[in-house]
Amino acid sequence: MASAELNAALHRHYLRNQRWGFFWALCTAVLWGAWYIPGTAVWYEEPFISIDQNDHGLRLAATAVMTWIHAIMVLLFLLLWNGMLGKIADFGRTIVRFRRISKWYALASLCGGPMAIFGSYMAMGYVGPVFAAITSLFYPVVGALLARLWYQEKISASAALGMAIIIMGGVVIYGPALFGEADFRDNYAWLGYLGGVMAAVGWGAEGAVAARAMDVSDPDVGIQCRFSFECLFWGLLVLPLIYLLTELPLGSLIWVMITDKMILIWMLLASIAHAYCYTAFYKSFSLIGVGRGEAIGNLHGVFAVLFVMAFTLQLPAWYFLVGLTLTVIGSFVMFREPAESVAELREAET
């Protein structure tokens, strides 16, 4: 009787952890989807809307400034979050151990920030936004493979199947539009394809690299370390280099971003969504693993389309419903795994 009671309590415990893990991953997907609305809207404000499509230098400089200010705002919201949770001191204790611990968060910020975002921008600019969205959907495969090869994260058959179905769903959502977008005669298209690969590898590697540091540190603290490094990277390296090597108007871009009311509102909304999207993302890794966390996070494609639909009142095409069904089925296939198998994420020796 006592043993039955204990077994039931154990099952409830593992089930609760599994549910929290999937809940955080789902929050990631919802907030990531929501982020596209203010993240896109800011490009429709002056002076960004007036930047010529072919003025690649200015577009890249604007993106760099935008990403830096975005990272600073995200960091402020994370400070608020960790302040409320009482984890600021632990953040200090973690970030100062750079050589052994927080360097992994610095590397994660390079993978997720400059590599993936810059790659995504290249994919958008040289092939098209739909191609960029599709290539980024493959990042859980990269993340799961890296986590598997690097530190033996277990990928069960149902997790792999669920992951494949979710990715297929994403491809169905965006796929048909890709045929109207890809232009294989374009000499610069290879830059876009390279960017697509950079996005998938960058975001996939970010999860695996960050999880390496989260072995010995708190996920809430970890995400604050990651954004601290991203702020430093853009502010102390990339932007000064652009300033020294080009004549692009960085100063006026920064000034307009921090003084224009509408740009500030969009940036604040994007930063809130991104700050807590990333917090949820990192929290899910430590409970359900990088592979599952990233795959459920991939549902952001569905939520992005739903949010766009809500704001523009434009109904999506029929194939969106097919893709939506596939991604939801894929999520349930993953969620059907026994909670006990999710409780031990790695094949570690005792």
């Binding site: 009671e5 154990l10 989260m214 996920p219 430590s286 999710v342 031990e344 994420l345 790695r346 094949e347």
Partner: peptide, 15 residues
């Protein structure tokens, strides 16, 4: 989280 990541093992449990 440490147990899920394999850094520590649960060797027994009780209520």
């Amino acid at each position: 989280e440490l147990a899920a990541a394999g850094l520590i093992n649960r060797i027994s449990e009780r209520i």
